[in-house]
Design a protein around this nucleic acid. Structure first.
Lengths: 187, 187
DNA sequence: TATATTATTTATCCTATGTTAATTTTTAGG
DNA sequence: CCTAAAAATTAACATAGGATAAATAATATA
């Protein structure tokens, strides 16, 4: 997935603005297992995922809680970091070798301040991400784990192939044992 | 809470931009029980809550699910509506008589397109809302209802005073009966 | 290929929360 | 102040999902 595609899929911007963004972007490849963002640290970067898959997680009562998966075309960002310039609360780990586009948060902020199209692009990005998170919050609020798993494999069949079940279970808010139980009932 | 305060608390903007926003705002009072946004309908407005309290809810398996409370200073918005111009998935109901600032979404969109400060103000609004939702999603993912209730009464003691327990229970993702049980154990 | 490691499943038992229904408390109207 | 309606609590029972441990399967490494 090209950087132009990723940019315009978030929100179409005029060619000149897209160019400004592109100029700041650096392409890198990192290996599976690499931690891209770390709890309590400030990262100076934002990434767009060209190829691969990643997860965001944190610890709650000594248990890893995966709360997001990022895939081709997704923006990888630590929100607390990006928005408030404060240490993030999550780790983000590469689950496969990944091709990434990297851009410095500070450069992005400069563009927000000087290019209205990019400011609106950034606005739109946050807005669509917000809707996604809200929908997930709602779905989890009143459906059972089994239903949520069904929904996951319908909407994201590839996830289950590419990601360890322990991460899927955590993402669904249940234990791995419980997920195994659910899976065995389906087959 | 004045409209200037509300605007600048979201993200400070230069006086001239704040003026542009202010000019579009109309102040209204509506009675308890009024539905401000309705499922599957498009609203042309965004509101800022001067005084009062509201909730956003939807139906899931014939059960009301409250997923957000808005209070003094909060922005009342149907995200799907505001972002995509599509029918929203939620109802928003006034739980008390409310004083509101109303602004037309179309007017706001015009300002986003022509004033970079306001575009960045809108960006910032979405970003901070995003962090709030993300934190709630995470908190719900791996803490028990009793803990979540404790957290609620610590951080938002007034909510429990002002809002019916059935709504609180739904917000916590449990039944009212279960919340009663939790409350009785605490006392 | 054999072995060690890691991931997944299965089994058992237990607890938090759901469901339904009855009871008590609170609120709103006459 | 009294009554009807609405909200909250309590009780009894059912179930989804957690915890632990053991067994199996998959993966990586020598």
């Amino acid at each position: 997935m090209s950087i132009e595609q990723i940019i315009n899929q978030i929100y179409p911007v005029p060619e000149t603005s897209a160019q400004k963004l592109k100029q700041l972007v650096e392409e890198i490849t990192l290996p599976k297992g690499r931690i891209l963002f770390e709890v309590d640290k400030i990262s100076r970067n934002v990434y767009f995922l060209k190829k691969g898959i990643v997860r965001a997680y944190l610890f709650q009562h000594d248990t890893e809680v995966t709360f997001w998966f990022g895939r081709e075309g997704d923006t990888i960002i630590s929100m607390k970091n990006y928005v408030d310039n404060k240490p993030g609360y999550e780790n983000i780990e590469l689950l496969e070798d990944c091709d990434l586009y990297r851009i410095k948060t500070s450069d992005l902020r400069k563009l927000f301040a000087e290019d209205i199209h990019i400011a609106n692009w950034g606005r739109r990005f946050a807005e669509t991400e917000l809707i996604k998170v809200e929908e997930r919050l709602i779905s989890r609020q009143f459906s059972m784990a089994a239903d949520r798993y069904q929904e996951l494999i319908t909407h994201n069949p590839d996830l289950v192939q590419r990601v360890q079940l322990c991460h899927i279970a955590s993402y669904l808010g249940i234990t791995q044992v419980s997920l195994s139980r659910i899976r065995s009932k389906i087959r």
